[in-house]
Simulated scan of single mutants.
Amino acid sequence: MAKDDVEGEGLDAPILLAEWEMPLRREASLIERLSEVDQAIVRQHGHEMRLATGEPLFRQGERHDGIVVIEDGQIRSFYVAPSGREITLAYWSKGHFVGGPDVFGGGTHMWAATAMRPSRLMFLPGAGLRQLARQVPDLAIGIIDALVFKARCYSAFAQMLGTRSVAQRLVQLLQHLAQTYGVKDERGILIAAAFTHADLAALIGATRQWVTVQLGRMQQEGILTNRRGLMVILKPEALAAQLEHAGER
């Protein structure tokens, strides 16, 4: 992600590959949803963390311990293949947590996570978290709700990778970004967040060069403009029509 993100209405929504119609608005944060008394209990158990842009939260294969609630900032979770190639699973923002599925600790991380901008986090260690969930039932319910939400997100991600061509995935991603981060502009729909071609490529399982070529083609056809990482969808209907023949590319 570029550093100069434009503030939009949907910045708390996750960024991931999914059908553009899929609602991905988050539920209330694990901590925000609690009473003041329960929040104090949870924070007493946790430890505040701060990460700079680019600083890793955890690495793939490291020992798993507890969960981390994002209080401000943005965390990218991604899988590193044996070849070294990375594929982005999601960008998570304020209110979401990272560190599942082994929320109580144990095993190793199946993927990595890194701060994409300065982030303030609340680390809830696995040791004692099970007992804390018994003590604060609303926390336990929140963890279940969040895991269901993540399962829905990752199921959509897997379905897209398995059933859509890479060209279709790019169109679906652009539609999803327009729905989630779209701001009405005199020219069309401004995607109010800055992405590099490498960012988009990692989200759809393609190369940066391929994404550059495809966006260049769409720009020549007048479907969108893409300057300095800021994209405007000029013709949403024409973008939607790309799905009908994107599988041929």
Rank of each mutant, 00 (worst) to 15 (best):
Q74N: 11
D72E: 14
I233T: 03
E9R: 12
A158E: 14
K94F: 01
F97A: 00
Q219M: 12
L243K: 11
A81Q: 13
K184S: 11
E71M: 13
A178E: 05
S83G: 11
A115G: 01
I233N: 01
A194V: 10
T163P: 02
R164W: 07
Q60I: 09
A146F: 08
T108R: 13
H64C: 10
L200D: 03
A198H: 12
T88E: 08
A81L: 13
L34P: 04
A241H: 10
E244S: 14
T114V: 09
A241L: 11
Q214F: 06
P236S: 12
V213E: 09
R152Y: 10
A90I: 03
Q74G: 10
I41C: 05
G222D: 08
E186R: 12
W111H: 15
E32H: 04
S119V: 02
L243F: 03
D65E: 02
G188N: 03
L230H: 09
A156F: 06
A238K: 10
R134D: 12
P23F: 08
Q219H: 08
A146S: 12
L121C: 03
D138G: 09
H176F: 13
A81W: 15
T212A: 15
I75T: 02
L230M: 09
I191Q: 00
I204Q: 04
I15S: 04
F195A: 02
L243H: 10
R120M: 14
M116H: 05
R187L: 15
A2D: 11
R25T: 08
D145N: 06
L174H: 04
A13Y: 04
L89W: 04
E48A: 08
E36V: 14
A115Y: 05
L177C: 05
L89N: 05
Y79W: 09
M116T: 12
V42K: 00
L139Y: 04
A52F: 12
D4Q: 15
V98K: 01
P236V: 09
L124P: 02
I233E: 03
D199A: 03
L51Q: 02
L51S: 04
R187G: 04
V98W: 09
E19N: 13
P137C: 07
M49W: 13
G229I: 07
F123N: 06
R164V: 07
Q214Y: 10
G10P: 02
E7S: 11
F104K: 06
K184G: 08
R227Y: 07
K235F: 09
Y91P: 00
H64T: 06
A28I: 06
A246G: 03
E248H: 15
I143G: 03
S77G: 05
W92V: 00
R120Y: 12
A81F: 14
P125S: 06
Q172C: 12
A90Y: 01
I75K: 08
E221N: 13
S119E: 01
R227P: 00
